[in-house]
Design a binder for these strands. Structure first.
Ligand SMILES: [Zn+2]
Ligand SMILES: [Zn+2]
Ligand SMILES: [Zn+2]
Ligand SMILES: [Zn+2]
Lengths: 133, 133
DNA sequence: GTGCTAATTGAAAAAGTTTTTCAGTTGCCA
DNA sequence: TGGCAACTGAAAAACTTTTTCAATTAGCAC
């Protein structure tokens, strides 16, 4: 992510890099507060404000995705698959990406039946990871 | 909804009925504060606490669904189709239901490839309603 | 290197949202 | 017509998120 951040004209501050690293290495979804804790383990003194700002930035750039299932709507997980969505474990909040496929027909059918145009979609799966089953 | 509320052992208070009516008649998604305003138009003196409690109750009973797209995650829309999901207009927040169909294969494929079991899913579409196009 | 500047940062305050408390009220059943 | 558990709303508490602003700093030009 760091390289792409720079490519997009953003400074590579140690605080920002700590947050980026936390999310790159995360296997579960993390709330801003959880990100703060972990980022402070990498670089003490990171502020919560910076965490919020960095999460917004990473969202915009498509490096993280907000996760709605599995406890609240304020958790973030790394995007490992650009054209994909998140599958969350109900037990341990482990998050994996799965490819977005097979929605085209449903989208077209929905557009036809409602008269709406469909510009984007939100899809998440929730279940149990192998370890929690 | 009122009949089913009673069937599920809940009291039919005027406050609760006002909130129920607001949501039955809503064509857009509504935040708790918006629900409060409208409910007070039906029955003055309704409290915000009651709105929150009633929205929780109606969610549990499956009469409303929380909507995540189109501005925050704290908006509610009536469920007009049990086995369905919501499509939200980006312009006016008009919400319609569409049937849940065609996901089985993607779910099975995802389960196979990840080793997770998939218990539930969240799906929302966002676009423009006929009037806003 | 050195200096410049716009971007970034964090503490604090403000704003906003949601939950908890609790005393009083009330729908519903016997 | 009680009786009582469910329900209510005001206030307070608890949280979460955003805004402010003075100080710092990454990255660039020289
Ligand atoms: Zn959400
Ligand atoms: Zn798990
Ligand atoms: Zn519209
Ligand atoms: Zn579905």
């Amino acid at each position: 992510m760091a390289a792409e951040l720079r490519a997009n004209g953003h400074k590579l501050t140690p605080q920002r890099l700590a947050v980026v690293r936390v999310l790159r290495e995360a296997t579960e979804h993390l709330t801003p507060l959880q990100v703060l804790e972990r980022a402070r383990g990498i670089r003490s003194g990171v502020g919560l404000t910076t965490v919020y700002r960095t999460l917004d930035l990473l969202s915009e750039l498509g490096f993280v995705r907000r996760v709605h299932l599995g406890g609240g709507c304020q958790a973030y997980a790394p995007v490992r698959q650009r054209a994909g969505h998140h599958l969350v474990c109900q037990g341990c909040h482990h998050v994996v990406d799965f490819p977005c496929a097979g929605l085209t027909e449903l989208i077209e059918q929905t557009a036809r039946q409602t008269g709406f145009t469909v510009a984007s979609h939100l899809l998440e799966f929730e279940g149990l990871c192998p370890a929690c089953q």
